[in-house]
């Protein structure tokens, strides 16, 4: 395997990790602060992508479409929170899993009904179209670099928000000890709404960024949601730092695994077996990673909560 290919896979892994972080950040905060398992978080990602496509159709301008899509994603997130989710915060996890599963079914079908089952594509903005010479003989698209940069920028912004603002302090306190925060007389409902809306918008942002790279189709958030859950479990529920590190870890392991697993298997098996086992192992790698992490640390790498 050549170093250039490895470099490309590293960048692709980083890009997947960044997208995963945008989804996982909202998921882990909502779960950490409110104890709420939101399976429907993945459809927020799909909603973001579809909205971007729809608004691009109207404005024919990438940034305008992005801003409008973010605002609409925020509105949809808040509407869901108001209509359904706030009634679930005090229910047990099982109820939350079921009700949000219902929301997934509804929104996936709605996307299919409105936009049709065929995958759509959002064109790359002109000013990011094209590639640059990564190393001798290899081009890498500007847009993908932009995704990584944008993702890292949001991560940094989030870090500042959580570390240095009053809401951020409440969020951290809430993730560590929810009873205490409500005992302090904080308007917990408003805090929940802010956190929830913010999380929904981040997932929507990931959807917008992903729209020019992956195909936009119904159910596109489902599998990514499961991976995002893997991320927050590995990172430790409620921890932004954990989500960030785990997201990059999972992104890299998954991407590099897909390139390297088959070659690695060739060291142990004959070529045809390796071609069989390699891809299967690659798809499983992140789940194996998660099982291994939980085996040694049953509450993830950076648990935000004390033993409770």
């Amino acid at each position: 395997m050549s170093t250039t290919l490895l470099l490309i896979q590293l960048l692709n892994g980083l890009q997947l990790g960044v997208l995963l972080f945008l989804i996982a950040a909202g998921l882990t905060l909502v779960f950490g602060v409110m104890g709420f398992i939101n399976l429907a978080h993945g459809v927020q990602y799909m909603v973001g992508a579809y909205l971007a496509v729809a608004f691009y159709g109207v404005t024919e301008h990438f940034l305008a479409a992005m801003v409008l899509a973010l605002l609409a994603a925020l509105a949809i997130g808040l509407a869901l929170e108001f209509l359904v989710f706030r009634r679930l915060y005090h229910r047990d996890h099982l109820d939350q899993v079921l009700a949000t599963f219902g929301v997934i079914l509804f929104l996936n079908q709605a996307a299919k009904t409105i936009f049709g089952p065929t995958p759509l594509i959002l064109p790359t903005p002109e000013w990011l179209d094209g590639s640059f010479l990564l190393v001798e003989g290899l081009l890498y698209p500007w847009y993908r670099i932009a995704v990584i940069v944008a993702g890292l920028a949001v991560a940094a912004l989030l870090y500042v928000l959580v570390r240095h603002t009053k809401v951020g302090m409440l969020v951290r306190a809430g993730a560590a000890n929810p009873q205490m925060v409500s005992a302090l007389g904080v308007d917990i409902e408003r805090l929940f709404m802010i956190v929830f809306g913010f999380g929904a918008m981040l997932a929507g942002f990931a959807g917008v960024l992903a729209a020019p790279i992956f195909s936009v189709e119904p159910g596109m958030g489902d599998d990514l949601l499961i991976v995002a859950f893997v991320v927050i479990i590995i990172g430790g529920i409620g921890s932004i730092k954990g989500a960030f590190i785990a997201a990059l870890l999972v992104g890299l392991v998954d991407t590099l695994g897909r390139t390297l697993a088959t070659d690695a298997m060739k060291l142990f098996f004959d070529v045809s077996s390796a071609n069989q086992i390699g891809p299967a192992l690659a798809s499983m790698l992140i789940y194996i990673l998660m099982a291994a992490v939980l085996f040694f640390r049953p509450t993830g790498l950076f648990p935000a909560k004390g033993m409770a």
Partner: peptide, 16 residues
């Protein structure tokens, strides 16, 4: 054909 549009909300209401 779009039965999930009905089933999804039904599931939510049942849980609630």
């Amino acid at each position: 054909h779009d039965w999930r549009l009905i089933f999804g909300p039904l599931l939510v209401l049942t849980v609630l």
